[in-house]
Design a protein around this nucleic acid. Structure first.
Lengths: 185, 185
DNA sequence: TTAATCATGTAACACGTTACATGATTGC
DNA sequence: GCAATCATGTAACGTGTTACATGATTAA
């Protein structure tokens, strides 16, 4: 149950609407968790029923009315329990679900040119993903101004480091694999 | 829809029962995709309805009776279409869903000793996962004897390489992060 | 005038997990 | 005697995705 806890974590920084949450969620946690707006709205109503949040309707005249969510004491407790209690397993931490790797696994069934083009596409996307990290540091700087707690942005940087290392390792692998496959021809 | 295609891929090597599939699936594709037996049985009945497989009941006297699944021509077509047509996106290829990283992201909410112990646990599991690769090469050797097609085991090795690189990068990250956090105290 | 942004949702479906049920054989 | 392996599933629930609906404002 991590979408709920991700939302709790964000609401702990300050009250937000579903719409804002949805954007912030995918902007900041998007590397390791994503959620569609439809799901986020569903989870929010669910969380309000659980007493983790409360909402108030804010009437606007220039824009559609909105619903502002605020974390409750129960919500804060739930968040810190989830953070501490390590019912995180290998799965939680290390499990990569990748239909791309599944395709590679079975790539012996198609021509080797089709196999290499699959990996080349992956290689391209790794480079793209890596280039996005050029601006990450300054984005974190901006966010951390809002939250104004250096302790928090410290961990954001550490998570971003993981992302960068991951894409770098993926790119290295793609390069190496393509060399291996070309050598054998 | 990758579980179905993973099962198709395995059945393409030879007919198997649900039970055998379940084990083989998690043994060989388990690094990047997993499925519980209950789900696998459900998918198999579904796939038979789709005409991708047919099944025959095999009566046994020493053991419970079993149901042997065989891939059909339609199934083989479906498999190769899925392998070729790259409706694989960044998501498919690179998306890591990790509640562990989410915990790290919000680790500013708990004490720094709790944060470091979270990462230390991760570090331990990385080492464990890495050590499993000592035997991977020989396992692939054995499997490839059964399938007897060098072309196939080539890609298995490439996928295994990804796994090893991934855990290595994860471990490096954990080491570096712990140093960073200790320095700041 | 067309797309983007703001803002909230419902309904249906697809996929994944947990818990439970059954029952024989084999090795420690 | 107990756990593991063989073998197949159902039921209920939880989570994630797709498609659809509405409607105002603002910038290119």
């Amino acid at each position: 149950m991590s979408l709920k806890h991700g939302l709790l974590g964000l609401l702990n920084y300050g009250s937000m609407t579903g719409y804002e949450l949805s954007k912030t969620f995918n902007d900041s946690l998007g590397f390791f968790w994503q959620g569609k707006t439809s799901q986020i709205y569903r989870e929010l109503t669910d969380m309000e029923k659980l007493g983790w949040l409360k909402s108030e309707r804010v009437v606007q005249h220039d824009k559609p009315n909105k619903k502002l969510y605020t974390i409750t004491e129960d919500g804060r407790n739930e968040l810190s329990n989830w953070l501490i209690d390590g019912n995180s397993s290998i799965n939680d931490a290390l499990y990569v679900r990748s239909s791309f790797l599944m395709r590679v696994f079975f790539a012996g069934e198609v021509s080797s040119s089709q196999a290499t083009s699959l990996i080349r596409e992956f290689q391209k996307q790794c480079k793209l993903a890596l280039s996005a990290f050029d601006t990450t540091s300054s984005i974190i700087d901006e966010y951390s101004k809002i939250v104004a707690d250096k302790n928090k942005s410290k961990y954001w940087r550490i998570v971003a480091m993981f992302g960068e290392a991951y894409y770098k390792a993926s790119l290295d692998w793609a390069d190496k694999s393509l060399l291996l496959l070309e050598d054998e021809e």
